[in-house]
Amino acid sequence: MKKWIPAISALTMAVFAVSLTGCGQKKAEEAAKPAVSGAASGKLQIEASFYPMYEFASQVAGDLADVHLLIPASVEPHDWEPTPQDIGKIEQADVLVYNGAGMEGWVEQILASSNSGKLSAVEASKGLELMEGADDHEHAGEAHDHHDDAEANKDGHEHHDEAGAHKEEHDHEHDHDHDHNHGGLDPHVWLSPKLAIQEVRNIEAALIAKAPEHKDQFTKNANAYAAKLEQLDEDYRKALENTKRKDFITQHAAFGYLAKTYGLSQVPIAGLSPEQEPSASAMTGVVKFAKEHQVKTIFFETLVSSQVAETIAKEIGAKTDVLNPLEGLTEEDQANHLDYIAVMRKNLEALKAALNE
């Protein structure tokens, strides 16, 4: 994700002044609302990195800000790189909302070189307890026997998902260096409704600090959205606490926080990046696990190819289904006016079905 950084300073220095004065408006490819042109509205101008950050910021800001989406909702954000025009939009904004935890590898460099005197940046995951990410799953199958631990320990909130449990194995068994793509941390905190609430609260605090005259409205908006997320969290807890099984196989290791929150065990085919190709031994390990535990559904995701998941499903005679990591919205999602909560409810139904097969 950082392969472009050596070039950014040279490229940016060459076009930066131009991008600040005339970067122009690109056609919006946003998830829920079109981008509103700039400071002419007189509102707070917010740039949000990718879809969940856009949704959370929009909910807190309400009609007090224009919230723009930097990474188009139909684009997989792990590999996205900002253009000089994108950098210009960030410089012109009042607030930049990003997830952090290594998800947006470009943020640190942009903020370090920013000359904006008004830009405030909020790392929505700041203060959350982050997990170490799964490695390249050379030993995928071996670590997944934590299924038995999940079955034996059903208190609902104290489980270690595969990514967390595998960390201990990783520490003791693997001395070689793995490329985690996110600095070793799992950034996918937004997929746990409980943690999403904390991200919303961090955004609320940042907007209040930026525009304290609107404190009451920001708090009212945040409270209303947090109540919806609390209901979502409760629905997840009730639906998943007594399922027949506790493990699920997914395309990449995005669901560690969701698994930990609700006492499940994710079995990812690949690591933190959906574009990461699993090794042959990782594929073999997942197939072995799936057969031994009679897994009947292999989850794939939107925005990336489902070929690997389909290959494993065919090998074991299972079906495939979507488990959406909400890193963006597909054109179909947008056409159906889906949002974070709606997609998370679809994820819940898919999980509930698979875990009760």
Results as ranks from 00 to 15, higher is better:
residue 162 E to I: 06
residue 31 A to K: 00
residue 127 G to C: 10
residue 160 H to T: 07
residue 125 S to V: 01
residue 36 V to T: 09
residue 18 V to F: 15
residue 123 E to H: 07
residue 42 G to N: 12
residue 71 I to K: 14
residue 178 H to V: 12
residue 15 V to T: 10
residue 70 L to H: 01
residue 341 I to Q: 01
residue 20 L to I: 11
residue 137 H to E: 06
residue 333 D to Y: 05
residue 98 Y to P: 09
residue 163 A to T: 10
residue 229 L to M: 07
residue 352 K to Y: 03
residue 315 E to G: 02
residue 60 V to N: 02
residue 295 V to K: 13
residue 23 C to T: 11
residue 271 G to Q: 04
residue 255 F to W: 06
residue 24 G to N: 12
residue 230 E to C: 08
residue 302 T to Y: 00
residue 157 H to P: 01
residue 168 E to M: 13
residue 244 K to R: 10
residue 205 A to S: 15
residue 235 D to M: 05
residue 292 E to G: 06
residue 3 K to M: 04
residue 188 H to D: 00
residue 46 I to N: 03
residue 333 D to N: 06
residue 235 D to V: 03
residue 325 P to I: 11
residue 151 E to M: 15
residue 29 E to I: 05
residue 40 A to M: 13
residue 231 Q to A: 09
residue 280 A to P: 12
residue 335 A to W: 09
residue 223 N to E: 10
residue 107 V to K: 04
residue 217 Q to P: 00
residue 186 D to W: 12
residue 311 T to P: 01
residue 65 A to H: 03
residue 353 A to Y: 14
residue 232 L to Y: 04
residue 151 E to P: 08
residue 52 P to E: 02
residue 201 R to I: 03
residue 159 H to Q: 14
residue 236 Y to S: 03
residue 230 E to S: 12
residue 72 P to D: 01
residue 325 P to W: 12
residue 186 D to P: 11
residue 36 V to E: 10
residue 100 G to Y: 08
residue 23 C to G: 05
residue 159 H to S: 11
residue 257 Y to V: 03
residue 335 A to F: 05
residue 133 G to C: 07
residue 31 A to F: 05
residue 118 K to H: 09
residue 218 F to T: 01
residue 242 N to R: 13
residue 106 W to Y: 14
residue 177 D to L: 11
residue 147 H to F: 11
residue 270 A to E: 03
residue 26 K to P: 14
residue 224 A to E: 13
residue 56 F to L: 04
residue 145 D to G: 06
residue 235 D to I: 04
residue 51 Y to W: 08
residue 262 Y to N: 02
residue 240 L to C: 04
residue 76 E to Y: 12
residue 168 E to V: 15
residue 225 Y to D: 00
residue 77 P to L: 14
residue 303 L to E: 00
residue 293 H to G: 00
residue 338 L to Q: 11
residue 335 A to S: 06
residue 326 L to K: 14
residue 308 V to G: 00
residue 29 E to P: 10
residue 262 Y to R: 06
residue 283 M to T: 04
residue 288 K to S: 04
residue 347 N to F: 09
residue 176 H to N: 02
residue 185 L to K: 14
residue 285 G to P: 08
residue 296 K to H: 12
residue 80 W to P: 07
residue 177 D to C: 05
residue 345 R to F: 02
residue 288 K to E: 03
residue 269 I to Y: 01
residue 59 Q to K: 15
residue 92 Q to L: 15
residue 242 N to G: 06
residue 323 L to D: 01
residue 280 A to W: 09
residue 106 W to R: 01
residue 49 S to R: 15
residue 259 A to N: 13
residue 257 Y to E: 00
residue 211 A to K: 15
residue 171 D to K: 14
residue 19 S to T: 15
residue 285 G to V: 13
residue 115 N to S: 11
residue 50 F to N: 05
residue 22 G to F: 14
residue 262 Y to F: 08
residue 305 S to R: 09
residue 140 A to F: 13
residue 347 N to L: 03
residue 32 A to E: 06
residue 202 N to S: 06
residue 179 D to V: 10
residue 23 C to Q: 10
residue 344 M to V: 06
residue 173 E to Y: 08
residue 284 T to S: 13
residue 78 H to Y: 02
residue 130 L to C: 10
residue 325 P to D: 02
residue 158 E to N: 15
residue 129 E to D: 15
residue 111 L to R: 07
residue 35 A to Y: 04
residue 280 A to V: 15
residue 306 S to L: 02
residue 236 Y to R: 11
residue 171 D to C: 02
residue 196 A to C: 07
residue 252 H to W: 09
